[in-house]
């Protein structure tokens, strides 16, 4: 009941609206074939799907990072608080309050952890005191980073680098964080820890999250709403709770089934059939 009310409330207040976007790389490779999604303010929205489904491309289309990889949005629109941002420069998008944490961390290896975090505040103009306060805030969420603040990021562990990447994004004082595959290459326990921190940042700082994740199980436990992408299209969406209960999601993404595990071959054809039907 409470969830429903929250959802209804949220639908009124979408910070980010992606309408039917098509993305082409290198002028020829069609990657997204009409993706639409809404991100409600203050929520955690998950973008699920397998390799090559188009999760990362969707996030990069929003943050504007596509251009540097020779990709472009050829159709549709991306609106952030009602403003078109699909052709905006990444720096402008960051100033508007949307920052992306890229897949595979991408810390600045030869900079120390603290320098990494400070680089996150590059676009800010609200003075050194505010930036220093936020640095403390990040260290509060990630005490581990404080211990390693003088180490070069390249020498820290995968988990620390992921924390560094999230912390760096937080330093830009964002409204919305696009988080790409935070669980990649991390031990389950660490994944849990990162997601817990994401959740508390979401709740305490009111930061909206759009989360691309292959680990459907974890993502659906922490997210409020989910979209499932397949081959550049949204094939299913709904509140995270409903998706968790959904038979198909259970079967394809959570590896559970009433009839026991299906063979890979059956799953393939079933998937293909489903796609034709949808």
């Amino acid at each position: 009941m409470l969830d429903d009310a929250k959802q209804a409330d949220a639908q009124v207040d979408n910070v980010l609206e992606v309408n039917n976007i098509e993305v082409i790389y290198n002028h020829v490779i069609l990657v997204l074939k009409g993706v639409s999604l809404n991100v409600p303010k203050g929520g955690i929205t998950a973008l699920l799907g397998g390799n090559g489904a188009g999760k990362t491309t969707t996030l990069k289309a929003i943050s504007g990072l596509l251009a540097s990889e020779r990709g472009e949005v050829t159709k549709g629109s991306i609106k952030y608080r009602g403003q078109d941002i699909q052709h905006a420069d990444p720096a402008e998008t960051v100033k508007q309050g949307v920052v992306q944490v890229m897949e595979g961390r991408h810390c600045f290896e030869h900079l120390t952890i603290e320098e990494n975090l400070m680089t996150g505040a590059y676009t800010r103009t609200d003075g050194n005191a505010a930036i220093a306060a936020d640095l403390e805030l990040v260290y509060n969420y990630f005490p581990r980073l404080k211990e390693r603040r003088k180490s070069q990021a390249g020498y820290t562990s995968g988990g620390e680098q992921q924390m560094c990447a999230v912390g760096r994004a937080l330093m830009s004082k964002p409204e919305t964080i696009l988080l790409d595959e935070p669980s990649m290459g991390l031990a389950p326990q660490l994944v849990e820890q990162i997601f817990d921190i994401v959740k508390s940042i979401n709740e305490q700082e009111g930061v909206t999250f759009l989360l691309a994740e292959q680990n459907t199980n974890v993502a659906l436990r922490f997210a409020h709403y989910g979209y499932i992408l397949e081959s550049g299209r949204v094939v299913m969406d709904g509140p995270a709770k409903d998706l968790r209960e959904n038979q198909d999601v259970k079967e394809f993404y959570l590896g559970m089934s009433d009839e026991g595990r299906k063979s890979f071959r059956d799953v393939r054809s079933y998937r293909r059939r489903k796609r034709w039907l949808s």
Binding site: L65, D89, P90, Q100, M102, C107, F108, E109
Partner: peptide
């Protein structure tokens, strides 16, 4: 160190 990451935090 990393163009893409610099771009992602808003460095022009």
């Amino acid at each position: 160190d990393d163009h893409q990451a610099a771009l992602s935090v808003g460095v022009s």
